[in-house]
Simulated assay, not measured.
Amino acid sequence: MSREESEEGGVYVPPVVFALANLTMTISFVVAGLGFAYLLYGIFAGLSGFSGWDAAKQQGMLGIIALAGKAMMIGLGIGSLCAAVIFWFEEVVGYVILISAGVLGLGIPFAFPMLGGEIASKGVANALGVFPLASIAPAIIGGILVVRDIFSKFGRAIQRRGSDADLSQVKLGASAQREQKPLRTSLLGKCWEGSYCRDWVRPHCPIYQRRDACWRQRRGCYCEQEIVSAAANKTQGGMQLEMAPSSQYNYANPSAPGSTAPPKVILNDSQKAERCRNCVIYNDHQSEKYKIVMPLAIVATVVLCALISPLMKQGIQGSFTLIEQTVAKVSFSSSSESTVTLTRPPSTVEWGLVGAFSLMIVSKVLQIVEWCVFVKKI
């Protein structure tokens, strides 16, 4: 994250802090990786003869396992915290940390019996018990980043709904000034009902005369010079206003010698659509569309999540059963029964997970709505 990005986020952190955080993160993850590798080797190979060792050696090995576990636990906790500081403005980091914590805490203990391992000694049991504990700190940090990302999307959506269209990238009519909107005949106004339609052009505009919208006809005053010229010629006293773009948007090659005007370009539908996407009127229309669609999308998604919440809860319960059945089928263990029995979370935790999944779904729906309205400009 650069200085500029941190300033955009409203908090400036000196570069030396980021350098220190990056160094600390690297060291922490290296320490955690060494502890992880040692414990992984132990449960799959090194601790196979633990039961036959004498008491002193067993006790010493349990101490080493505990030390390796602490190294992995502290390393992952500090490393994840530093990663959160460094990549605070990267929305994907929280999800990566959270998923990685889930894989670490659940994947290793479940993969061990699937690969034919048996918890035949206290050493193996202690080593396996470290992984869920080591995943707690990264899971909390990743969860905080995910919640921050979700609420950031909600805040951006509300802020964007309350603001006008961003016209910084508009090519057609970028310098146009807003005027008072006329009385509307529909919830989502047409081009001539917007604040960028000029009073002196409107009566002479073929789009207004048809009571249609310029983005449906793919032509209008901000992209075709003749509409403005015709309106100016019919207006008493003449009006001078640079509304339509320069000739490069409407005409092709220079005219032949002796010609009075360059030939008109015949644009195809995709070129006309691109012209609309770069027009001040259509971008203002998209902003108004978003103000209507965004709350409807939130309400519809929340209602849908509420309706399917019992199914989501059943899915959480069924996932535990599916994991147990998968372990029993693919395990190399000689026993025909599954050697792993998952502890079911209480009902309140399951409903909490349903609520978390619902928030994530709503945030992704808002992201899709923004993409459709402001990026693809559908």
Results as ranks from 00 to 15, higher is better:
residue 18 F to D: 11
residue 119 I to A: 05
residue 215 W to C: 06
residue 354 V to G: 04
residue 71 A to D: 01
residue 190 K to R: 08
residue 184 R to M: 09
residue 41 Y to A: 10
residue 250 N to Y: 12
residue 257 P to I: 01
residue 176 A to H: 06
residue 233 N to L: 15
residue 170 V to E: 06
residue 30 V to F: 04
residue 122 K to I: 13
residue 169 Q to E: 09
residue 352 G to V: 00
residue 333 S to A: 14
residue 297 A to C: 05
residue 218 R to W: 08
residue 302 V to E: 06
residue 78 I to Y: 03
residue 276 C to F: 09
residue 291 K to C: 08
residue 298 I to Y: 03
residue 185 T to R: 00
residue 173 G to Y: 00
residue 336 S to K: 15
residue 324 E to C: 03
residue 242 E to Q: 15
residue 282 Y to D: 02
residue 310 P to H: 00
residue 117 G to D: 10
residue 224 E to C: 02
residue 334 S to I: 01
residue 375 V to K: 11
residue 368 I to Q: 05
residue 376 K to D: 10
residue 62 L to Y: 09
residue 328 A to P: 09
residue 122 K to A: 15
residue 325 Q to F: 13
residue 307 L to I: 11
residue 336 S to C: 07
residue 325 Q to G: 14
residue 45 A to Y: 13
residue 315 G to W: 08
residue 366 L to A: 04
residue 353 L to P: 07
residue 81 L to V: 03
residue 345 P to V: 08
residue 293 V to F: 10
residue 327 V to Y: 04
residue 129 G to N: 12
residue 256 A to R: 11
residue 16 V to M: 14
residue 7 E to D: 12
residue 271 Q to T: 07
residue 326 T to V: 15
residue 331 S to D: 04
residue 127 A to Q: 03
residue 28 S to F: 06
residue 298 I to E: 05
residue 297 A to L: 02
residue 257 P to H: 01
residue 29 F to Y: 04
residue 364 K to L: 14
residue 342 L to W: 05
residue 124 V to S: 05
residue 195 S to P: 07
residue 365 V to E: 06
residue 236 Q to I: 15
residue 48 S to T: 12
residue 58 Q to E: 10
residue 316 I to Q: 11
residue 78 I to C: 00
residue 208 Y to R: 03
residue 107 G to E: 02
residue 106 L to K: 09
residue 108 I to P: 10
residue 84 A to P: 03
residue 224 E to D: 11
residue 279 C to I: 09
residue 84 A to H: 00
residue 103 V to K: 01
residue 369 V to I: 02
residue 312 M to S: 10
residue 165 A to H: 05
residue 224 E to I: 07
residue 186 S to R: 13
residue 364 K to T: 12
residue 196 Y to T: 05
residue 164 D to V: 04
residue 335 S to P: 02
residue 211 R to M: 07
residue 8 E to T: 13
residue 178 R to P: 08
residue 33 G to E: 02
residue 252 A to T: 05
residue 80 S to C: 04
residue 352 G to K: 10
residue 304 L to M: 01
residue 148 R to D: 11
residue 244 A to E: 04
residue 27 I to P: 02
residue 272 K to W: 00
residue 4 E to A: 15
residue 90 E to H: 14
residue 240 Q to H: 15
residue 188 L to F: 09
residue 137 A to K: 05
residue 3 R to N: 14
residue 131 F to G: 08
residue 305 C to S: 02
residue 259 S to M: 14
